[in-house]
Design a binder for these strands. Structure first.
Length: 350
DNA sequence: AATTCGGGGGC
DNA sequence: GCCCCAGAATT
C-alpha cells in the first residue's frame, strides 16, 4: 500500500507556495512554528478570498495590531475601516469578537484544539482545523474548496456538492497523516490551487496522477459536480450624497446585521424593485447622470445618485456629516466607494 | 438543506 | 456574463 500523504509531502517540500504568513517546510522540519495570531488572521481573511487579495490586508493588520491583545483593544470603527474593500464584513466584526474572547477567556493565548477553536466567533470547521494543524501541528483535517475538489477527483466521486461534503470529508480524514500534519494540510490546498485546478487541471505533473481515479476515468475536469445555482436578480436603490461647505460628507454607519453591516454608507432607500424617495433632509436634490452599478453575491445593484450642497448649519434627519480629518473614502465598502467616485466628480472641493 | 453574506480575477 | 476563491452564521 503506497503512502499517498508522504508522496504529497515530498512534492510540497519542493513546490510549496510562498505566502508572507507561512513557515515553509524546511523551517517547520527544524521545529519552527508560525505565530498562531498571524495564522488565524490569514485564515479568516482567506475565507472565500484569494491569496492575492489578502496579502496587503494581512500585512496592514499585523502592522496596525501586532498581537491579539492589540487587536482586542482596537476601536471597532478603525477595524472596519481597515477591512473596507475586502468584503464579507461579518468576518471583521467576528474578528474583533474573537480577539476579545481570546483575551478574556484564554488569557490572550490562542487555544490549540479543534474543539476550543470551533467555539470562537468566526471560526467554523475549516478554520478550526486549519489553525490547529498549521499553527500547532495537530493532525486535524482541513476541508476547503481545494480539498473538496481534490478528493472528488482522487476518488472519482460524482455526487454533487454541497450534499457530498460529508463523503469528501471522510475521504480527506482517511488520508491525513500523523506526521507533519501542518505541512500536509497546506500541501493538499496548494495541490488544489496550483495543479488540481477547477479548469484545465495539470494532471500530467500531479504527484497523485497514478492513484487518481478521475484521471483514469477521464472525468477530472468535470469534477466536482455542483447543484445548479439560480441566476442573480437586479435590485434598485437611491442614495443621497450631501457635501457641506466645509467639505464634510453626510454618511451613516449601517446596522450591524445584514449587507455591509457595520460599514459606512450613504443614506438612502431600501433596495428593491421600486425604491422610495426618502432624502435625509429637505433640499433641492439633483439627480446625477450616472448610476452606480455593483454586483453582490446574490444580486445586481443599481444605485440612482442624488446630490446636494448642504449649508453649514444643515440638520439631517439621518446620518452624520464627517469632515475629512475623520473620514477617508478608503473606509467605504466598494459599492459605496463607487458612489463616492461618481458623486465626487460633481461635488468638487470649493 | 438553503440562504445570506463581497469583491476580484480568469476565461 | 459565469465561475471560483484556505467558509461561517443564520434560518
Amino acid at each position: 500500500m503506497r503512502d499517498l500523504s508522504a508522496e504529497l509531502l515530498a512534492w510540497y517540500d519542493v513546490h510549496a507556495r510562498e505566502m508572507p504568513w507561512r513557515v515553509g517546510p524546511s523551517d517547520r522540519k527544524a521545529g519552527v512554528l508560525p505565530d498562531p495570531y498571524a495564522v488565524w488572521m490569514s485564515e479568516i481573511m482567506l475565507q472565500q478570498t484569494t491569496v492575492a487579495a489578502v496579502r496587503d490586508y494581512h500585512r496592514k493588520f499585523l502592522a496596525l495590531w501586532p498581537t491579539v491583545g492589540d487587536l482586542a483593544a482596537a476601536d471597532d470603527a478603525d477595524v472596519m475601516a481597515a477591512w473596507a474593500g475586502l468584503g464579507y464584513y461579518a468576518r471583521a466584526r467576528n474578528l474583533l469578537k474573537c480577539a476579545r474572547a481570546v483575551v478574556a477567556e484564554h488569557d490572550g493565548v490562542f487555544p490549540d484544539s479543534y474543539e476550543q477553536l470551533l467555539k470562537l466567533p468566526g471560526i467554523g470547521p475549516y478554520t478550526a482545523a486549519a489553525v490547529s494543524a498549521i499553527a500547532f501541528d495537530r493532525p486535524e483535517t482541513v476541508v476547503d474548496g481545494n480539498v473538496e475538489r481534490v478528493m472528488a477527483r482522487l476518488h472519482d466521486i460524482h455526487a454533487p456538492l454541497p450534499g457530498s461534503k460529508g463523503e469528501l470529508t471522510t475521504k480527506a480524514q482517511a488520508l491525513t497523516p500523523q506526521s507533519r500534519p501542518g505541512d500536509y494540510a497546506q500541501a493538499v490546498m496548494d495541490l488544489g490551487a496550483t495543479i488540481c485546478t477547477p479548469r484545465n487541471p495539470a494532471c500530467g505533473i500531479c504527484p497523485w496522477r497514478d492513484p487518481c481515479a478521475a484521471r483514469l476515468a477521464g472525468t477530472a475536469a468535470e469534477l466536482p459536480k455542483k447543484t445548479p445555482k439560480k441566476k442573480t436578480p437586479t435590485r434598485f436603490g437611491i442614495v443621497y450624497v450631501a457635501r457641506r461647505t466645509d467639505g464634510a460628507w453626510l454618511l451613516e454607519t449601517r446596522p450591524e446585521k445584514g449587507l455591509l453591516g457595520g460599514m459606512l454608507g450613504w443614506p438612502g432607500s431600501e433596495w428593491g424593485d421600486e425604491p422610495e424617495e426618502n432624502p435625509p433632509y429637505e433640499a433641492d436634490w439633483q439627480p446625477l447622470n450616472a448610476e452606480a452599478r455593483h454586483t453582490f453575491t446574490h444580486f445586481h445593484l443599481r444605485l440612482k445618485i442624488m446630490v446636494d450642497y448642504a449649508d453649514i448649519d444643515a440638520t439631517p434627519l439621518r446620518g452624520t456629516f464627517l469632515t475629512p480629518d475623520v473620514f477617508s473614502p478608503t473606509a467605504l465598502p466598494t459599492a459605496m466607494r463607487k458612489v463616492f467616485d461618481l458623486a465626487h466628480m460633481t461635488l468638487r472641493d470649493n
